[in-house]
């Protein structure tokens, strides 16, 4: 498969302390690859090493060890940067420039010719919904607007792969949905999107594959359904009220059993016992309302993993 990003054993130590500087490992032997045309979610708590990884890829910091290739080129390659886009975490730009001027400046640095540049700026401003404030200085922009202009400058050069560091942060619910749509439309155009987030629902909605980072280490990696569905087997069942004798009869099959005003809510240990359980429910005068597989959602994955660590 065609990989647009390959990270191999990337490690970063920071020296912390004033007198005796101790190295602290913030990224520990990270390896992963991102395929062309996919949306890749880079997930982790704050401080897990997501931003560090992206900053290494953008040559803002230099890794202690390991290497990475973007579009098959080493990250030192300056020409390759014309083919990528990058949105920094909480982006700040030159506030003395207008939105249009900022894009014009970056467009020049990308080496985009004047006529094409003008067109690109206009369509990009339209896309991120800033067309009517393009002539306003950035110091007058709200946080959400800055995030949008940040996305605009990341896709201005029509890049093959876009790196977005927390693209949804600082946005209201409508803004988040718009950014989601932009990311999805980038994939529709055949672009690869690599984005970091600590918000799980963004990943569940958008991503093809994910990597989960914890304390600088990769703890999960692969297709979203693989990562999510490692523990398929448990089932969640809702029924109408059953006779009083039903509850003790059902208890051995359930990991959890709750009685509610309208019926029972139970989680089955094993999917294989389903038929038996349905039988029991019917025998005790109940009716099945719903049966659902309990996927280990990413959120639970997070929590479970925390238990492992602490």
């Amino acid at each position: 498969m065609d990989n647009v990003l390959e990270i191999e054993n990337l490690t970063m130590d920071y020296l912390v302390g004033f007198w005796r500087k101790q190295p602290t490992r913030v990224l520990d032997g990270l390896s992963l690859s991102v395929h062309r045309g996919e949306i890749f979610g880079f997930l982790g708590h704050n401080g897990a090493g997501k931003t560090t990884t992206i900053k290494i890829l953008m040559r803002i910091i230099y890794p202690t060890a390991g290497k990475a290739l973007i579009l098959g080129k080493p990250i030192e390659d300056v020409e390759m940067r014309k083919r990528i886009g990058y949105l920094p975490e909480t982006p700040y730009f030159y506030d003395y420039l207008t939105g249009y001027e900022l894009l014009d400046y970056f467009g020049k640095l990308f080496g985009i010719e004047r006529v094409t540049r003008k067109k690109r700026i206009q369509t990009t401003l339209d896309l991120v919904g800033l067309a009517d404030v393009g002539k306003k200085q950035l110091r007058g922009y709200s946080k959400g607007m800055l995030q949008r202009i940040g996305i605009a400058q990341a896709i201005l050069n029509d890049p093959e792969v876009v790196f977005l560091d927390e693209p949804m942060s600082g946005l209201d619910p409508i803004g988040r949905r718009e950014v989601r749509n932009i990311i999805a439309s980038l994939r529709d155009q055949g672009k690869t999107v690599f984005f970091s987030t600590h918000i799980l629902s963004d990943v569940e909605v958008l991503c093809d594959r994910v990597a989960i980072l914890k304390n600088g280490k990769r703890v999960a990696y692969g297709r979203l359904d693989e990562v999510q569905g490692r523990d398929i087997g448990a089932l969640e069942m809702v029924t109408t009220t059953v006779a009083a004798t039903g509850v003790p009869a059902l208890t051995p099959f359930a990991t959890q059993l709750r009685q509610t005003a309208s019926g029972l809510h139970l989680e089955l240990k094993d999917a294989d016992t389903l038929d038996q359980v349905i039988q029991l429910v019917r025998q005790h005068g109940g009716r099945i309302v719903s049966v659902n597989p309990v996927k280990t959602s990413l959120e639970e994955f997070f929590i479970k993993d925390d238990r492992h660590h602490h």
């Binding site: 982006p91 700040y92 990308f110």
Partner: peptide, 14 residues
């Protein structure tokens, strides 16, 4: 300080 350098260094410049 203002982190404007982040997006600059990611551009095709030395």
């Amino acid at each position: 300080d203002k982190r404007t350098i982040y997006s600059m260094l990611a551009k095709p410049i030395y």
